[in-house]
Design a protein around this nucleic acid. Sequence first.
DNA 1: AAATATTTTTAGACTAATCTAAAAATATTT
DNA 2: AAATATTTTTAGATTAGTCTAAAAATATTT
Lengths: 219, 219
Amino acid sequence: MNLSSTEQDYLKAIFAITTIESRSANTNAIAEHLKTKASSVTDMIKKLAVKKLVKYEKYKPVHLSAAGIKTATSLIRSHRLWETFLVDRLKYDWSQVHTIAEQLEHVKDSELIDKLDDYLGNPSFDPHGDPIPTRNGAFPVREEITLINMKEGQCGTIASVLQDDESFLEALNDLDICIGNDVEFLKQISFDQSIKVIINNETIILSETMASNISVQKI
Amino acid sequence: MNLSSTEQDYLKAIFAITTIESRSANTNAIAEHLKTKASSVTDMIKKLAVKKLVKYEKYKPVHLSAAGIKTATSLIRSHRLWETFLVDRLKYDWSQVHTIAEQLEHVKDSELIDKLDDYLGNPSFDPHGDPIPTRNGAFPVREEITLINMKEGQCGTIASVLQDDESFLEALNDLDICIGNDVEFLKQISFDQSIKVIINNETIILSETMASNISVQKI
DNA sequence: AAATATTTTTAGACTAATCTAAAAATATTT
DNA sequence: AAATATTTTTAGATTAGTCTAAAAATATTT
């Protein structure tokens, strides 16, 4: 099916909200995710429903159809492979690559993404630590926990981030926090829910928001 | 300046017609080049004139301004670097890469193309043999002659093609003609203007159209 | 130089995606 | 369950790019 970049963006947004964030894909949630307005979302949802990419009943949250899930997954695959290329090969900083990959992921060619995958050595995780779907649409898994949910004394390594906002990624850079770093959870400070952790042998305090957006692979 | 992909395509078309093909950029010539209609061209030319990218007087052919030339050149640079990436790194056949590069060239990021250039080792010519403008906008040169214009007994190597049409590139593939092959011009057959040449130690006949679209580097 | 042909421009309409503002439906509070 | 608040949808407008058909300008032929 030939979809516009915009249609593809909507499918990705619905996938992110439902499958990744486990929320229901209301009109407003989608609008917020795509920084557009609710009325625009309603229009587009109708279009996608005609194309059988979403299941839609008026005033109800939307769901992706099997075809919709397939398309969204292959977009995520494309996005994450391009991010891997930009960081590993072109030496971009991982905080810069999201907006570029947003554009690259929409390039249409039947062979491109599989060739890129092979060229990069079929990586399982991207520079943000997120799983790259295989060409069959399967997401590689690993045992992860959100930093804020760790127990006192628990150890692990930074595995991925739950937000792609450039300011968030820069904050991590400023704190010298990278994918792969060792973490030990010390304790949560009840006053403001901030947490005390050891990362790279340095004891630091992270805000609740910060710690809610960092995913740790259990050891 | 923030230009849409469409605006960029018009600038490239005007550059190709004026500078590469040495013709004047009439409304119809541009329309034909972009497979659109004359009325659409007029509308767009007016837009580009307001943005000072072209010099335009009603009913006259358009010319690119200095800014227009700069933009067109950097698009050609982007296009040819992506083609090089697709062929050299992703192992595409050179006949397949044009339409993919058409999409990739529009990806917007201030550092991307220079990083790609460095990654590829700052190549001077793309897989079609065409010069890749440097980051300063200079076109690398070499001594070339169109195959049809060679003199009897003259020798050279296939340097580039003057058409990107997929069917043309496939025809070259079928004849086992590649960039870098040695050529010796034998004679032109006056009956139909076809030519007799030795390519890779094989004597073959090429149609006039064919030979008009192959560029040979003189030895 | 008048008649004809070609090219270019204008006028008005269409599509995809968006928006604002109002209306309708659903959800929450009292 | 009535009143209020929130969410969603509709209606109508806007913008970028395109198109067809007609009008205007330029070019060519006789």
